[in-house]
Computed example of a mutant assay.
Amino acid sequence: MANSTVVAKLLIVDDHPLFRQGVRWALSYEPAIQIVGETANGEEALRWLAQVDPSLEPNVVLVDLNLPGMSGLELTRQIRRQYASIAVVMLSMHENDEAAFNALRAGAAAYRSKDIKPAALADIIRRVARGEYVINDVLLEEPRIAGRILSQFRSLPEVQTLSGELGMPIFTPLSEREIEVLERIAAGSSNKEIADALGISTQTVKNHISSILRKLSLNDRTQAVIFALRRGWIETPQEIQPGSAEE
């Protein structure tokens, strides 16, 4: 597919020169990644973005959470506000629920700790460059943090799709069983837990998830949950009732 050939043009924002050099070295041989610049803080990053040649404009910015001066969270908010086409991958010394939640609220597409392996970081960078939203692997497996995130989106004043279109929470292309599966994903349930709750096999759960993503033209579970939540198709985790065990 065309999206698989998208080149990630990366700007690195970190106040440690040695770390920036290490990222450059680690990613230098990775396919479909081009490092177009680096800055030491948020203010410098915004100035760089404002004057960069269009041919070098990044589609991904790697941001340190704990930047001096303007924080990584504030920089992420500014980037998402001013450059909607740029995705942010946020890195931190420590990976924890609270920081991940704040990163998501700020608009980050991914959040990981700095001890991530280079190959895994490269994969995340390529994925967010293609428009994927990969913060989910950490968040939706934790029911407590998932509930906070989804309640936050539930409280939005307008029902809105991920692309910014206003939607009507009336029609859904999903089946009742797919809605049940999606609600349990929102509650942080694993595939096995969903299978046990609904009396179906884990393979059937996987098939339902694949069908959901295909119908909604989305890339991952988090996108599907947020999309459905904003359109009123599913309830927040605390409102989910036990489902039937029928196939």
Rank of each mutant, 00 (worst) to 15 (best):
A100Q: 08
Q51E: 10
L46H: 00
M1H: 15
Q34W: 02
T172V: 14
D196F: 00
L216K: 13
T204L: 13
R77T: 10
R144A: 11
L139Y: 07
L75P: 04
R130V: 08
S71M: 10
R144P: 05
P17R: 06
P118S: 06
L218D: 15
V88E: 01
E74D: 15
S155R: 10
W48G: 05
P31C: 04
V6A: 10
L56W: 12
A120W: 05
E180P: 00
T76D: 05
T222S: 11
E176A: 14
Q203D: 09
L174Y: 03
V63S: 01
I194F: 01
S217C: 07
A99C: 10
V88S: 01
A108W: 14
V159N: 07
A87T: 11
S210K: 13
A122R: 01
A195E: 02
I209D: 04
A106I: 15
V89Q: 04
I209R: 02
L49D: 02
G107N: 10
Q152D: 15
E132S: 14
N66I: 03
R112M: 11
D97M: 06
D220G: 15
L198R: 04
G37E: 02
R20K: 09
V89K: 02
P58F: 05
L91A: 02
I240G: 02
V128Y: 01
Y111R: 08
A2R: 15
V13S: 01
P169I: 05
G69Q: 11
D115C: 08
R230E: 11
S4D: 10
E180A: 09
P58R: 01
G37A: 01
T39W: 01
K114L: 03
R77L: 06
A122H: 02
A146Y: 06
R126G: 09
V6C: 09
E44G: 00
E158A: 08
S85M: 10
A146L: 05
R127N: 04
Q21M: 08
Y133L: 15
N66S: 12
G164Q: 13
L11G: 04
Q82H: 13
Q238E: 11
Q152V: 09
M93F: 05
L162Y: 11
L140W: 03
T39F: 00
N41R: 09
I33H: 04
A108M: 14
P237H: 03
V205R: 04
Q82T: 09
E141N: 11
I12V: 03
A228R: 12
N136L: 06
L62A: 01
R230S: 12
S4A: 11
E183V: 00
I145M: 14
A224C: 13
P242K: 07
I179D: 13
H208R: 09
E141G: 11
L67V: 08
L104I: 15
L91K: 04
L139Q: 06
R112E: 12
E178I: 11
E141C: 06
